[in-house]
Design a protein around this nucleic acid. Structure first.
Ligand SMILES: NC(=O)c1ccc[n+]([C@@H]2O[C@H](COP(=O)([O-])OP(=O)(O)OC[C@H]3O[C@@H](n4cnc5c(N)ncnc54)[C@H](O)[C@@H]3O)[C@@H](O)[C@H]2O)c1
Ligand SMILES: NC(=O)c1ccc[n+]([C@@H]2O[C@H](COP(=O)([O-])OP(=O)(O)OC[C@H]3O[C@@H](n4cnc5c(N)ncnc54)[C@H](O)[C@@H]3O)[C@@H](O)[C@H]2O)c1
Lengths: 215, 215
DNA sequence: TGTATAATGTGAAAAAGTTCTCAAACCAAT
DNA sequence: ATTGGTTTGAGAACTTTTTCACATTATACA
């Protein structure tokens, strides 16, 4: 198949598939069918096959997929065969929670630097990670080979921070500020909006069909 | 129009529209057209009208929408005309960051309680919010009228926590653990998966089309 | 009152995404 | 080799979501 325009829904699922395969590999399972993956992880087998087929023919008919081999393919496809250096902008509550999280984690992402505008925070450290002045972003990012930025500043500053980091050449940004951001189309922006998620839950609770209420 | 099966994409956008209207109201703007909202917040005007039309006829032809009136409708639709009490399970780094965040916030959601399994944490407080033993969840949740739960425990415990809270009658759950959870269909589960989001960004960086690289 | 302008609400068309189905390919056993 | 059981990959069918296009309804003003 080998298509070129892959939807984000598909790439998100690729990440999920990788996680599933990691679990299978940990258990020493060598081959697995799309049907087995689907059953175990509550997914749809046709969708798994279709998603994978966008990227190549990884399976063997009558057999399924070789777990190790497919893992390698997925890691390659997702760009996880290289280390990514993450900078977090905003050394507040969320920023520091994320720093600890990714700093301690076993993934290909490591937090290389924190940035803030508050002079009293600059120079301090969160765990191993130093807090720099946001003014020095371009310089530090170049030196530390930052390729992913997480925005964790108050909403009103998010757009300006976004522009600062994209001007410095950053192409991938994850945003936690509840603010609709405008970005150049050659930059990938992913906004995680907790308010929207919570309000969507609230909508569900408000529906009569849901037959809510304790007991 | 007044349909009954509304997609989650639509409800998420309703939350966005409400945020936009709040901003307009703050500026003293009284009426606005779908086109104006779309231009300003980088949305699609036809989609705004279609989304709103699922719930009623809120606009006036030739005029647009009355900002205050539409806000009221949106808040009602999203179930934001009542307070929601949130419990966060897992008083770790993420759990405490979220507690502070929502505790300080101006929304209809307030964090009423934290729960943990670690005996050394139980009885302590994060800001104003007490940490309870997860064993006492049903009891405390009933007393404090908890209606939304946030799961912030390590992945391996997420499924069991989910079952505990749904057994206690909780119908809306937001999950941060990177774990595929199985849930009853009368419960709304929303998983926010940072690993998947980051890996999706990494995929984008790995694409040759993206012409990446600093400078 | 009539005409020009504005902007909604909604069917229809288009696009995107998911699921079904089955020929083709593989393995194991005879 | 041939048969039978499996499972992929991919076209077709179906579903959902988005966008288009415009008749309809409202306002303003002559
Ligand atoms: N805390 C949470 O759990 C949480 C959850 C979801 C979303 N968010 C969002 O994440 C963002 C941060 O939340 P928080 O609770 O960590 O806030 P916070 O106030 O604790 O931290 C924000 C930090 O950003 C810094 N900052 C401000 N302007 C800056 C700039 N121009 N450049 C660099 N740094 C700057 C501040 O000095 C501060 O240290 C907000 O937009 C919030 O809505 C927070
Ligand atoms: N820290 C982050 O920034 C971050 C970001 C995204 C996702 N996550 C996810 O959120 C979850 C929590 O992350 P964290 O960094 O806060 O971890 P953490 O280790 O700091 O905190 C986890 C807490 O959960 C408690 N816990 C364990 N089992 C429990 C149970 N059965 N019932 C109640 N409490 C229990 C632990 O005692 C601990 O206090 C993890 O699944 C993690 O993958 C964390």
């Amino acid at each position: 198949m080998k298509s070129d325009k892959i939807s984000e829904l598909t790439t998100n699922r690729m990440s999920i598939y990788l996680r599933c395969l990691n679990e299978l590999a940990d258990e020493g399972i060598r081959t697995v069918s799309s049907e087995k993956i689907a059953k175990r992880f509550h997914l749809n087998s046709a969708q798994i096959r279709k998603d994978l087929a966008y990227f190549g023919e990884f399976g063997v008919r009558g057999v399924g997929y070789y777990v190790e081999e497919l893992r390698t393919h997925l890691r390659k496809i997702l760009g996880l065969n290289k280390e990514h250096c993450v900078a977090i902008i905003g050394a507040g509550r969320l920023g520091t929670a994320l720093t600890d999280y990714y700093g301690f984690s076993q993934t290909n992402f490591s937090v290389a630097a924190l940035f803030d505008a508050d002079q009293s925070k600059i120079g301090q450290k969160v765990g191993e990670v130093e807090i720099f002045d946001i003014k020095d972003f371009a310089e530090v990012a170049e030196r530390d080979k930052i390729d992913v930025v997480v925005i964790a500043v108050p909403a009103e500053f998010a757009q300006s921070v976004l522009e600062q980091v994209t001007n410095a050449g950053i192409k991938a940004v994850m945003n936690f500020a509840p603010s609709p951001l405008k970005v150049d189309e050659n930059v990938k922006l992913k906004t995680i909006d907790l308010t929207t998620s919570l309000e969507s839950l609230s909508y569900f609770l408000a529906q009569p069909a849901a037959k809510n209420g304790r007991k």
